[in-house]
Design a protein around this nucleic acid. Structure first.
Lengths: 155, 155
DNA sequence: ACAAGATTGTTTACCTAGCAAACAATCGCG
DNA sequence: CGCGATTGTTTGCTAGGTAAACAATCTTGT
């Protein structure tokens, strides 16, 4: 009865405030890391390009799956169809993507990058990759890959 | 010039949709994992107790740092002072915490758990711990700890 | 062939969670 | 004492998401 169950939970790092049992909860650290990543992204990419992580994700999915419909995009991004509308509107207004009429289905559109969109995405992507490496600067490349593979196993 | 730079990015898992270069971005996987964790939490703890991850975090910080003020809580949670107000109101309305007048500062309150709050937190915490382990069921205990330690190094 | 049902994009109304700025009350300090 | 800082709060704003209803259009069973 003396074994290995709970370990940390009391000292936490620095000092002062204690987070109690959350110190041992994966979800807690996941949330904190994600918030930190978001803030870092906001201060670099979003500040420079006006593109949020969500918009960037949409752009990449459209760029790498040219011609997909809004419904399919919604599925891939795991959000509601109705949430897609304003995002696609925004990207279209920025001239980055285009709604092409579907040849054999008058209900749906095929989403495609515009030439300017492709150009912009190359630039944005460069910034994102730099930001991403910068954010994980405390990790070796091996640790970074290890972390990614562990995260993948959660979903 | 043939070395080790980029590796994945093309096949992605299953098939169908490609996420392009995001496959190599830590932030991308961080966001996905966090969204998955949030949904899992919502389907278990929030469904059963009406407590979101944010509220749970607040409760734990209050429970483990009895008497802290709203401003201090805001600092710890890294949110704006004004965001704290409605959260504290909600927890107070639920009878889980109490705003005690500070003896030597009529501006601020000391936040404390009520007896019912302590009781409720014990129950909620049990659910959260179960949920957390359940969510990370795909990981061994060692991998789980490794993941946590890697995440900590990001913030 | 064609009615019934499913799908697509959209709108509207709503919710949560955050920020920013302004404010009154109060504190602390030179 | 008086001025600047701090505390909690309110108000207005934003981003991102859901749910339900809708018209237009496709698909499928008989």
């Amino acid at each position: 009865m003396s074994g290995s169950q709970v370990i940390a939970a009391e000292q936490d790092e620095g000092r002062g405030t204690s987070f109690g049992p959350m110190t041992d909860e994966l979800g807690f650290h996941l949330r904190r890391a994600q918030v930190a990543a978001f803030k870092h992204f906001a201060q670099t990419v979003t500040a420079a390009e006006g593109i949020t992580p969500g918009l960037y994700g949409m752009l990449q999915v459209i760029a790498n799956n040219s011609g997909l419909t809004q419904s399919r995009l919604a599925e891939v991004m795991e959000v509601d169809r109705s949430s897609i509308v304003k995002v696609v509107n925004a990207l279209e207004d920025k001239g980055l993507i285009r709604r092409d009429a579907a040849p054999n289905d008058r209900r749906s559109y095929h989403l495609r990058m515009t030439p300017e969109g492709k150009l912009a995405l190359r630039r944005i992507e460069e910034g994102v990759v730099r930001q991403d490496l910068d954010f994980s600067a405390g990790l070796s490349e091996g640790d970074r890959r290890l972390l990614i593979s562990l995260l993948k196993r959660l979903y």
